[in-house]
Simulated assay, not measured.
Amino acid sequence: MFAIVTIAGQQFKVEEGQEIFVHRLEAKAGDSVSFDTVHLTSGDAGTTVGTPNVSGAGIGATVIDHVKGDKVVIFKKKRRKGYRKKNGHRQQFTKIKIDSITV
């Protein structure tokens, strides 16, 4: 069984037991979180498509850890003008494990 759910503004295709990285959530490691914006569920009983959400469906997950993504370097330069600008960014992620999909 799988579902398509919106977590922190992004849509993910999730299955039970799967571990995914999502944008930083306001929860501590070990906490249980639930998401109710499920757009599609599919399993043995068939496929259910929501308009826009499937009513009564939910996803239960556990927060495993908070991690940082890879560093992205932004470098701007205009040749022969002496203009150089270097900037960097590391995205904050939360690793969660999908525990249950309820319909």
Rank of each mutant, 00 (worst) to 15 (best):
G46C: 05
S42R: 15
R84N: 00
N53F: 15
I96M: 07
R80E: 01
V67W: 02
H39C: 11
R90Q: 11
D44Y: 02
D31N: 10
G30D: 12
T51N: 13
R90C: 11
R90K: 12
T6E: 14
T6Q: 12
A3D: 05
I101M: 03
I59T: 07
A8T: 13
F21Y: 09
Q11V: 04
G82S: 10
F35C: 01
K85I: 01
G50E: 09
G17V: 14
T6D: 14
F93N: 03
G17A: 13
T47E: 10
G56D: 03
H66Y: 13
T62V: 13
A3Y: 06
V73N: 09
K68A: 04
E19S: 04
Q91F: 15
V33C: 07
R79T: 08
Q91T: 10
I74R: 00
E19T: 04
D36S: 15
T6W: 10
D99K: 03
A27E: 11
A61V: 12
H89P: 12
E15M: 02
F35P: 04
F75Q: 13
V103S: 12
S42K: 15
M1T: 01
Y83N: 08
I98Q: 04
K86D: 00
G58A: 09
I64P: 08
S55Y: 09
G60P: 07
P52S: 03
T6K: 09
K76L: 02
S32V: 04
A29V: 05
E26M: 12
S55R: 13
G50H: 07
I101C: 01
K97Q: 11
G82V: 03
K77R: 10
G43L: 08
K28W: 03
K86N: 03
